[in-house]
């Protein structure tokens, strides 16, 4: 993995067509500007994981009614 340091206002190129510019770094957050062809999909990484988690949620392995047992157990513990 390539690791680079960039200051505010500096940029980097990925291939010939994608340019990432650091606009600002404040309070632990980097604000980025990305110039890329329309055909390139740009997603926050967590969005992909969120979609995958939803797909898992849509495809349950046992009846959700079995969760009632887990919930009741918790209640008893309290």
């Amino acid at each position: 993995m390539l690791i680079l340091q960039r200051k505010e206002g500096e940029s980097l190129l990925i291939g010939d067509e994608i340019e990432v510019t650091v606009l600002a770094v404040e309070a632990g957050r980097a604000r980025l500007a990305i110039q890329a062809p329309r055909s390139v999909t740009i997603l926050r990484s967590e969005l992909k994981v969120a979609a995958q988690t939803n797909r898992e949620a849509a495809d349950e392995e046992v009846s959700p009614l079995e969760l009632l047992g887990v919930l009741r157990e918790r209640k008893r513990d309290e």
């Binding site: 967590e46 969120a50 988690t53 939803n54 898992e56 949620a57 349950e60 392995e61 046992v62 009846s63 959700p64 079995e66 969760l67 047992g69 887990v70």
Partner: peptide, 17 residues
Amino acid sequence: LCVVRNPVGESTVNLRC
């Protein structure tokens, strides 16, 4: 949202989303 697993005790919940 909950991912219901078998066994059910391994089910997970998504508190981030």
